[in-house]
Design a protein around this nucleic acid. Structure first.
Length: 417
RNA sequence: CGGGGAGUGGCGCAGCCAGGAUAGCGUACUCGCUUGGGGUGCGAGUGGUCGGCGGUUCAAAUCCGCUCUCCCCGACCA
C-alpha cells in the first residue's frame, strides 16, 4: 500500500451529501473533474472492472457478442429516427470542422441499427445479441450523487435482433435471467420492477433496482412471489395474494426493453424471412449502469466507518495489516503471507506503510476490504494472526498455517454463485 | 430551466454585515524528537492570484457591478 495511489481523506468533502459519494471520495476511488464528470482512481477502477467482468461473462454466457461502437456519432443517424429533435439538450451536440452535425452517444440504438441493416440480410443471420461496455454522454439537467447520475458514465448496452415477436420475448426472458445472475454475482440484493419504457420506446420493460434504504425509487414488492411493482401501481400481485405488499426503496441500475420495430422501421433495417418477404428486424435493448452499480453497492453496504464491499466487488479481498514495520521479522512474515495469498489466487494488499496501527485500521475499514489479516506482536509469537471480517466486525485468532483454509471458508460464505 | 446556498493553502472552516498593520484556525504535508493495537504527543517549517474581470476608496477577502464555477431541492434518467 505504500505504492498504491489511493488518497484517503479523514474529513468529508462538503459536496458529498450521500454515503456512496462521500465514501468514494474519502476512500480515494474517484475524483471529480467537473460537475457530473469523474476520474476513477486505481481502486475505483478495480471495482468498476470487477463489475464489468461479471456483466461481460453473463452476457457472453447467453450468447452476447461484445463489440465497441464509437462515442462520436453523426447527427444524420439521429435525424433518421427523429431523435435529433426529440432528445433535447441532454444530447451533447457539436459540429466537426466541416460543419457536419455530430453528437456524443447517450445510447446506441441508431449506431447498432445502422450496422445491422448493412450486415444482416437473412433470417439465417438471426437472432443475434450484440453488446458493448462503453462510455456514454448525457448532459443531465442536474448531475448529482457523484457517479450515480453523472454526465459521462460507463454503461453496458446490449441490443438483440430477432425475426419475430416470440423470438424477441424469448430473448427478453433470457436476458432477464442473465440480469438476475449479474446482480446475484455482485452480491447485491436486487428487485426487478415493471416499468414504463420512456424515451427509448417499445413495449414491455423492466427496471432492475438495487435494494437500499437511501434509494430514490419506491416500489412495492410482493412478500409471497417477490414480484415488484412501481409505487404508483396499486394493482395486486400476480400470485393472487393482495395484502402482502411491502414497500421498499431501490436504486435503478439496469433497464431492459422490448423495442419491437421502432428503430428497425425508422431506419429500414430489414431481413428476408423464410417465405422470401422483407420484414423489419425485431429489437430489444438492455442496459446496466456499471458505475451506478458500484455506487449502489456502497449505498447498500457501508457503515459509519466506511465501505463494506461484497466479496466479488472488492478491489482487493484481503488487506494484510502488520501493526508496525519496525522489525525485520514482522516485515518478513507479512511479505511471506502476502506471497502465499497471491499464489493461492487471492487479491490482496499489504499495508507496509510505516504508520500507526490505528491509522491503518481506519484506512482498511474505510476502503472496505472484506477481510483484514492483522499481524501483531502477541499473535506473532504464537504463529497466529487475527482475522477480521469487515461486514460483521467478527474477529478471530487463527494459526498462520490455517490462513488459506480460513479464507476459503469465508469466501464460500460470501459468494453464492 | 425555476428555487436556494457556496467559492479564502490539499481537505474542513473563521474573517466579510460595521474596509485598515504580516489573512487566521483545525487537519494534511516536510523535518526533528517522541509514541507504537483504532487517524500519538511536542517543537519547527513549507504552502494563499481570498474564483475571475471591472469599479468605488488614501486603502478591498471585506463595499458595488458583471461574469465563471460548484453544491442542494424540483421535472428527467443507467
Amino acid at each position: 500500500m505504500s505504492n498504491l495511489f489511493a488518497p484517503t481523506m479523514k474529513e468529508s468533502p462538503t459536496e458529498a451529501e450521500i454515503a456512496s459519494h462521500n465514501l468514494m471520495l474519502r476512500a480515494g476511488l474517484i475524483r471529480q473533474l467537473s460537475s457530473g464528470i469523474y476520474t476513477y482512481l486505481p481502486l475505483g477502477l478495480k471495482t468498476l472492472n470487477k463489475i464489468s467482468c461479471i456483466v461481460r461473462e453473463e452476457m457472453d454466457r447467453v450468447g452476447g457478442q461484445e463489440l465497441l461502437m464509437p462515442a462520436m456519432q453523426p447527427g444524420e443517424l439521429w435525424k433518421e429516427t427523429g431523435r435529433w429533435d426529440v432528445y433535447g439538450p441532454e444530447l451533447v451536440r457539436f459540429r466537426d470542422r466541416r460543419k457536419r452535425d455530430f453528437c456524443l452517444g447517450p445510447t446506441h440504438e441508431e449506431v447498432i441499427t445502422d450496422l445491422v441493416r448493412r450486415e444482416l440480410r437473412s433470417y439465417r443471420d438471426l437472432p443475434v445479441l450484440l453488446y458493448q461496455i462503453q462510455v456514454k454522454f448525457r448532459d443531465e439537467i442536474r448531475p448529482r450523487f457523484g457517479v450515480m447520475r453523472s454526465r459521462e458514465f460507463i454503461m453496458k448496452d446490449l441490443y438483440s435482433f430477432d425475426t419475430d415477436r416470440e423470438g424477441m420475448q424469448n430473448t427478453y426472458e433470457i436476458m432477464y435471467e442473465a440480469y438476475c445472475r449479474v446482480f446475484e454475482r455482485c452480491g447485491l440484493q436486487y428487485q426487478a420492477v415493471r416499468a414504463d419504457s420512456g424515451v427509448i420506446g417499445g413495449d414491455l420493460s423492466h427496471e432492475f433496482l438495487i435494494v437500499a434504504q437511501s434509494g430514490e425509487e419506491k416500489m412495492m414488492v410482493c412478500r409471497a412471489c417477490k414480484a415488484g411493482y412501481p409505487e404508483e401501481e396499486v394493482s395486486c400481485s400476480v400470485c393472487g395474494t393482495t395484502s402482502a405488499l411491502e414497500e421498499k426503496r431501490g436504486i435503478e441500475v439496469g433497464h431492459i426493453f422490448q423495442l419491437g420495430t421502432k428503430y428497425s422501421q425508422a431506419m429500414n433495417a430489414l431481413f428476408v424471412d423464410k417465405d422470401g418477404s422483407e420484414k423489419p428486424i425485431i429489437m430489444g435493448c438492455y442496459g446496466i449502469g456499471i458505475g451506478r452499480t458500484m455506487g449502489a453497492a456502497i449505498e447498500a453496504y457501508h457503515d459509519e466507518h466506511g465501505i463494506q464491499w461484497p466479496w466479488n466487488l472488492a478491489p482487493y479481498q484481503v488487506c494484510i495489516i502488520p501493526v508496525h514495520v519496525r522489525t525485520a521479522e514482522m516485515v518478513k512474515i507479512a511479505e511471506t503471507l502476502y506471497n502465499t495469498l497471491q499464489e493461492a489466487g487471492y487479491e490482496c494488499v499489504l499495508d507496509d506503510r510505516d504508520l500507526r496501527a490505528g491509522h491503518k485500521f481506519k484506512d482498511a475499514d474505510l476502503l472496505g476490504f472484506p477481510v483484514q489479516l492483522i499481524l501483531g506482536d502477541r499473535s506473532l509469537k504464537n504463529n497466529q494472526l487475527e482475522v477480521k471480517i469487515r461486514s460483521s466486525d467478527e474477529r478471530v485468532d487463527i494459526n498462520r498455517e490455517d490462513v488459506l483454509e480460513t479464507l476459503e471458508s469465508i469466501r464460500k460464505k460470501s459468494v453464492h454463485i
